[in-house]
Write a protein that binds this DNA or RNA. Sequence first.
DNA 1: AATCTGACCGAAAAGGTTTTCTGACCGTAG
DNA 2: CTACGGTCAGAAAACCTTTTCGGTCAGATT
Lengths: 344, 344
Amino acid sequence: MAAHPPPARGHRAVTLSDVARLAGVSVATASKALNGRRQVKAETRARVVDAAERLSFSPNALARGLLAGRTGTVGLLTSDLEGRFSIPILMGAEDAFGSGRTSVFLCDARGDAIREQHHVRALLSRRVDGLIVVGARPDPRASLGPDLPVPVVYAYAPSESADDLSLVSDNVGGGRMAVEHLIGCGRRRIAHIGGDPTYGAARDRTVGVLEALAVAGLELAGGQPFYGTWSEAWGRGATRMLLDRTPDVDAIFAGSDQVARGVLDALHELGRDVPRDVAVVGFDNWEAMAANARPPLTSIDINLEHLGRVAAQRLSAAIDGEPTSGIEALPCRLVTRGSTAPLT
Amino acid sequence: MAAHPPPARGHRAVTLSDVARLAGVSVATASKALNGRRQVKAETRARVVDAAERLSFSPNALARGLLAGRTGTVGLLTSDLEGRFSIPILMGAEDAFGSGRTSVFLCDARGDAIREQHHVRALLSRRVDGLIVVGARPDPRASLGPDLPVPVVYAYAPSESADDLSLVSDNVGGGRMAVEHLIGCGRRRIAHIGGDPTYGAARDRTVGVLEALAVAGLELAGGQPFYGTWSEAWGRGATRMLLDRTPDVDAIFAGSDQVARGVLDALHELGRDVPRDVAVVGFDNWEAMAANARPPLTSIDINLEHLGRVAAQRLSAAIDGEPTSGIEALPCRLVTRGSTAPLT
DNA sequence: AATCTGACCGAAAAGGTTTTCTGACCGTAG
DNA sequence: CTACGGTCAGAAAACCTTTTCGGTCAGATT
């Protein structure tokens, strides 16, 4: 174990000319050698590479970026890190970029437009090659504007402008998928207890529900979708009301996993067996909620990590000169657990 | 084969010399005018500022950083973005930096040492001014090494090296705090159902428990702490075992909120009223878990966001030449909810 | 009138890398 | 022996900003 010569901090970082000097060549040659350019004799290249290694040289990305006009960085602008929806998107994006040679600046605007502007300016000043904007809730948000010097991709919350590219999850498809699954389980009296009706996503899921029911020639049990809040308490209350009014329900599609937890609770208290008497499907596939429910909750997963990855790909494409625009809806995925089962 | 017309935004970014030209001064003067240097006439400065505004000039941080030897960026290296512990730390750090003029590179190593090394190299190549390393679990982890060219702060998981600076939460203090609260509620027969004993944090909490009991001249109810996993199921099982063995328990301190949820469940099934018969305290203050429990769960909050903020401050200090080292334990905070109350 | 003092502005260097262009050298063909 | 082609190395420019240093000019002082 050789004691490292302490390359004390504050020590000037080793530069390409240090490498060149040690290898006995010019900086130009050193650069070419390290970058695999072909105009260097093999033996010279080896000498340079060796020198670089010995000095543990790492090229200054700033200098490189300054010259190239590209920095290999992107900005990830979120509005709500606290919420649990941003994180998977962020992970997907970071993952997709991280495997290449792009680094990610993270900014959280905390839902404040001023702060968002501030961050955008800071990022542009750092000459990011592009931006991903992750909204706090899945409703349309203001565009950052058409005159930014770099491409932008909106994820989760679409931009209000059709000239931007937005990636969202297909809530209509998700609602349809849930009901199709319930129908596939032989259920016929299917109710929908939605979430907060001020969310477009909540209404979209209902659209999917109605589509799937129409195809099967069924009506919505309870006569209408019920809207409230995204809470467990609402799930409980709505379920009591529903069973009071329509006791023969055999399936409930809840607007979120939290609502579904409330639904399960109420069904339990009312003496209905899940999934025998009533099957329940949630939405979001929030692992901690769904997996720990009793019984574990079948749920629709909106694939946020995938959404983040696609956002990264689209942004990369745009940076490489192949921009796209419009709203792209990404499909959901059904995760079956114990709360649904075929009628026996 | 440029099939695509170059994006209109491929336009060269506006530079300081553009501003200078428009204002009719030299770049040197323009720079001084914009940076508030005192050697320019007020009227000249106004002309420059106006020109900069008209061109919406934003200075190139790369060029600035290249010259200054400081980039105003730091790397945030996490191992487990998916887990819910990294996020608050990350938010705190981003917040503390974001208010200044520092930007944050986010990297997730996914628990892989190779990937971590890769990210460190990339960050150093980008000449970050410092690094914050957020561990996946609160046990000591390998140091990145003593010979990095920039200061490093370890958060949540301390470094194995005492020469590094590590910030962790005070689990001993947290355990003590929980028991002191229970004693303050008049409880005397206090049991501890811990989590996974392979976690140092689980054992530390027990240490705090025993300290607080000793001060009050009490013994641990059940005769020993119980260890298992961080799961609801373990909480249920352990509680049944405990009540079987020691039926007169009047308080349970659980190793985590999930364990506490299991404890509550079991107590409910066994017909004990919470908090009248048995008071329960959880750990982590996981909002979604604690607030939705019935009754809502008193819990110990480990202040992760604060930890992130402090990490950012310490890193800034180190960057400014005032390094610190050793392990700094940050205090926890008691959040009282319905699951604890004074004996009546 | 000559010198000095400020106030203000500009030229130039520095920071690290990549790329283009030029130049040296060697071997081979004429 | 000359001309030529090919191979490899180096000099210099470019990217953009900040800072230092020197210079000009007006007005004040001796």
